[in-house]
Design a protein around this nucleic acid. Structure first.
Length: 598
RNA sequence: CGGGGCGUAGCUCAGUCUGGCAGAGCGCUGCGUUUGGGACGCAGAGGCCCGCGGUUCGAAUCCGCGCGCCCCGACCA
């Protein structure tokens, strides 16, 4: 491509909308353009990167035995009613009506469509196993798009769906996708860590996310410093710090103490001169059961040094949506905010206790009257919970549960990260809701078990830039760079010989199968060098009068500090070798080694 | 959905408080000089000052109502 003909210009200053270094570089380089909140165009350079990422994905999916399809983006809304997800998705689902007033939706994901397609065309166990995938535009009306290409409302996603006869089959399909994902992220130069994750609204029995660890991430990831345990904070298990045990003898009798104006755990601990873990903390929610629409109050109790984890709490209650209780509802249920107590609660309030409370004696809890707390509150003796479960979040410094189970001491740390891909064991969640059965080998019927596997193409692009850039610009991983080589011609309008040399080299490189961005513009050298650094092709070549006279070409890898002169005759081979080395550098081992080490 | 900020040239931003010719730098066009890390001179082009309504002799500027974008939070497959 001749730069003199390429659509789009580089910017010296980044538009103010840029909110990360990588996003700024993509905007400055003319890779992407924002049309509205969370909706982007990919300009020629950005489009090329996107296509290359898709190609990597396609190759790995095909190699894993998956078959590519294209599913409709526009779908009947009633399909979403069959699984109850039209309601579950809520406002995130883009909905519209056609001219006959039929309710439609723009696909945010395709479990329903693929399950229908599968049901229509698979008839017996002999059709299993099968994995189908597509690379498609998804639509999600996110409440708040952010982070450049990270959280957007229209985006390209690769989604794959596996169908198997049984759990053992699902394990094989899931494993194949998991390994393909590791290769995809590595080849694209994006370091990721697989972490245990909550399945969320998509349902199913367990899932793992591939996380790119970065300070601009929107998820909190918990990692062990000793073993390989890693999990999303929504899901992470941990060893609770020990409770302060009672002095020898039985739990003491409760006594009320006056605590004027003391409504937070910190204030309470300071006021009484005790630790936060010697207190009980209460948080109240309204829960709505998704299946029935039934609404009920929830009173969550955790030890004072821990925080309620809403995802875990919702899971402990089973298939509910939670929202914080309004002030009026708090009063209506006889709860005194700031001094709430699990002791003597009304029967219609569902009490859920964290595991940390069961063996923590003599805690200080609220008295359920303004200005008073109660000492020596004990679970079992003074109050009971409908559910006792893990409903608190792991935090940095907590113990690693896996290490503890295996007799080691591991300490957890917390980092920010972005979800690049997510693999789910859906089990028969969708096939049973949509009533899909196949004939089995024995003349009976079987309900296939599913897996689903997603990757955000735009997120890979954005993360690749965040992971590979410097102050001057982008440094693309070899496999996804828009062009393999950036060929700069200096002073070509003044030197016909150098101009002919540059043209010849441009042709030779292309004839050798390399993709070349040729800066043939009438610009000063500084402009060209700076644009080359900004745009970030892996290799830069410079042809100029003095190089042509010496029968050499200057070569510089994007991140190298110095250029080197090599004989004109060896340029094509040299570039090809550099490209191969660049691709080899993105091995699974090399990229994953980088992933945790940030 | 709650809180905050911002909408003026392709980009970055002055001008708004205190109403009175639509501005600067970069970028863009032409000519000339220059030419190895974002040159210089001369001459130009480019604006629904987010929109609508109001106040006023007069509104980018003041008032009201919208819309859009960004940030923090809530939410997030």
């Amino acid at each position: 491509m001749r730069m003199s003909r390429m659509f789009g210009h580089t910017l010296r200053e980044a538009p103010t909308e840029a909110d990360s270094p990588g996003h700024a570089l993509l905007l400055r380089g003319g890779y992407i353009d924002q049309l509205m909140a969370g909706v982007y165009s990919f300009m020629p350079l950005g489009h090329r990167v996107k296509r290359k990422i898709e190609q990597v994905i396609r190759e790995e999916m095909d190699a894993a035995g998956a078959q590519e399809v294209t599913l409709p983006a526009i779908q009947p809304a009633e399909l979403w009613d069959q699984t109850g997800r039209r309601a579950a998705m809520g406002a995130v689902l883009f909905q519209l009506t056609d001219r006959r007033d039929r309710a439609l939706a723009l696909g945010p994901t395709h479990e329903e469509v693929i399950t229908r397609l599968f049901a229509d065309h698979a008839v017996s166990y002999r059709d299993l196993p099968v994995t189908l995938y597509q690379i498609q535009t998804k639509f999600r009306d996110e409440a708040r798009p952010r982070g450049g290409l990270i959280r957007v409302r229209e985006f390209t996603m690769k989604d794959a769906y596996s169908f198997d006869a049984d759990d053992a089959g699902l394990d094989v399909s899931y494993g194949a996708m998991f390994e393909a994902y590791r290769r995809i992220f590595a080849r694209c130069g994006v370091p990721t860590v697989p972490v245990q994750a909550d399945s969320g609204a998509i349902g199913g029995k367990g899932s793992q996310e591939f996380i790119f660890l970065t300070s601009i991430g929107e998820d909190t990831i918990i990692l062990c410093d000793t073993c390989t345990y890693a999990a999303n904070q929504e899901k992470a298990e941990f060893v609770r710090p020990a409770a302060v045990q009672a002095a020898p003898g039985a739990p003491q009798a409760t006594t009320d103490i006056e605590t004027p104006g003391v409504t937070s755990i910190e204030a309470l601990a300071a006021f009484l001169g005790i630790e936060a873990r010697q207190t009980a903390k209460a948080v109240f929610f309204m829960a709505t059961r998704a299946a029935t629409g039934e609404t009920f109050p929830v009173f969550a109790v955790v030890r004072g040094d821990l925080d309620v984890n809403e995802v875990k709490l919702a899971n402990a209650l089973g298939d509910v949506e939670l929202r914080p209780m309004l002030d009026a509802e708090v009063a209506q249920h006889g709860i005194v905010a700031g001094y709430a107590s699990p002791v003597g609660l009304r029967a219609d309030v569902r009490v859920v206790a964290d595991l940390s409370l069961v063996d923590a004696p003599n805690l200080v809890a609220g008295s359920n009257r303004v200005g008073w707390h109660t000492r020596h509150v004990n679970y079992g003796r003074d109050w009971q919970a409908a559910v006792v479960a893990d409903i608190t979040s792991a935090q940095a410094g907590h113990g690693c549960a896996r290490c503890a189970a295996e007799g080691r001491a591991g300490t957890l740390r917390a980092e920010r990260g972005i979800e690049m891909g997510h693999v789910f064991r859906l089990d028969t969640t969708y096939t049973s809701k949509m009533d899909v059965t196949l004939q089995d080998a024995g003349g009976g019927q079987l309900t296939p078990t599913m897996g689903c596997y997603g990757i955000g193409v735009g997120r890979i692009l954005a993360a690749a830039v965040e992971a590979h850039c410097d102050d001057a610009g982008i440094a693309w991983p070899a496999a996804i760079a828009p062009y393999d080589v950036h060929l700069i011609g200096l002073g070509l309008d003044r030197d016909a010989e150098a101009a002919a040399d540059a043209e010849a080299l441009y042709a030779e490189l292309r004839a050798a199968g390399l993709e070349v961005l040729f800066d043939d513009r009438d610009e000063r050298p500084g402009v060209k060098f700076n644009d080359a650094d900004l745009l970030g092709m892996p290799v830069r070549l410079t042809v100029s009068s003095r190089n042509t006279k010496a029968d050499v070409v200057e070569v510089k890898a994007r991140l190298a500090t110095e250029a080197e002169s090599i004989a004109r005759g060896g340029v094509v081979t040299h570039v090809r070798t550099q490209r191969e080395q660049g691709i080899a550098a993105c091995s699974v081992e090399a990229v994953e080694a980088r992933a945790r080490g940030r």
